[in-house]
C-alpha cells in the first residue's frame, strides 16, 4: 500500500518515519488553517498558499493520484460497487501510465483501502455534523462572523476528508523492507 520510492531522499519504509511525517503534516495543516481565521485584511499570501496546499495534498500523501507516499487508490470506475477491482493501468489525473511503485493494489491493499475509508468517513460524518452545528450557531448569534469563519471550518473539513485515509494508512501499515 505504501510506495517503495524515497521521499526527498528519505526512506518511508519504517513506520516511525511515516508517523513522524503524518504528525508533521497535520501540524502544518493546523497552523495553516489559521490563515482562514477572521481577519480584517485581504491576504493574497493566504490565498496562494491555500490553493497550493489543496493542489499539493495529493502529491504529498498520494492516494488520489500517482507519485505520493501512498499508492494511488485506483483509476476511475464509473460503475460503483462492482466486484472487478484490478483496473488501474492508467492514472487519469496525471494522464500518464502508472509506474512500477504505483502498480495496482492487490486484494489485501484494496481491503485496507476500503477499511480506512470506512473509518475516515465515519469520523468525517460526525465532524461535518459538529461543524455544521457550529456554523448554524454562528449564523444565529454572530452573523457577521459567518463569512469569515465559514472558510476556516470548511477548509478543515475538506483537508480532513482529503487526507485522513492516507494518514491512517501511513500510520497503521507495518514496517516494510528497505528497497534495494
Amino acid at each position: 500500500m505504501i510506495s517503495t520510492k524515497k521521499l526527498f531522499g528519505l526512506s518511508i519504509a519504517a513506520r516511525s518515519t511515516r508517523r513522524t511525517l503524518v504528525v508533521a503534516y497535520w501540524c502544518f495543516v493546523a497552523v495553516f488553517s489559521c490563515a482562514f481565521l477572521p481577519r480584517g485584511n485581504f491576504n493574497w499570501f493566504g490565498v496562494l498558499l491555500a490553493v497550493q496546499l489543496l493542489i499539493q495534498i495529493p502529491i504529498w500523501l498520494g492516494g488520489v493520484r500517482a507519485g505520493g507516499m501512498v499508492k494511488p487508490f485506483r483509476g476511475i470506475h464509473w460503475v460503483p460497487l462492482q466486484e472487478r477491482e484490478h483496473v488501474q493501468s492508467v492514472s487519469l489525473l496525471s494522464g500518464s501510465p502508472a509506474r512500477g511503485e504505483d502498480a495496482s493494489l492487490d486484494e489485501r491493499e484494496t481491503s485496507l483501502r476500503d477499511r480506512v475509508h470506512f473509518v475516515a468517513y465515519t469520523v468525517s460524518r460526525w465532524f461535518a455534523l459538529l461543524l455544521f452545528g457550529l456554523y448554524c450557531l454562528l449564523a444565529v448569534f454572530h452573523p457577521a462572523w459567518l463569512g469569515q469563519a465559514g472558510p476556516f471550518f470548511l477548509f478543515l473539513l475538506t483537508v480532513t476528508l482529503w487526507s485522513l485515509p492516507q494518514s491512517l494508512i501511513l500510520w497503521t501499515e507495518p514496517d516494510m523492507e528497505e528497497p534495494q
Partner: peptide
C-alpha cells in the same frame, strides 16, 4: 467498506465545492 469508499469520494468533491464558494466569499 466499499460503499464508504465511494461515498467518501463524492463527499470530498462536494465539500471542495462548498469550500471554494466560502473561500471566494471570504477573500
Amino acid at each position: 467498506d466499499r460503499a464508504h469508499y465511494y461515498s467518501h469520494r463524492v463527499l470530498s468533491f462536494l465539500f471542495l465545492i462548498v469550500w471554494v464558494l466560502a473561500f471566494e466569499r471570504r477573500f
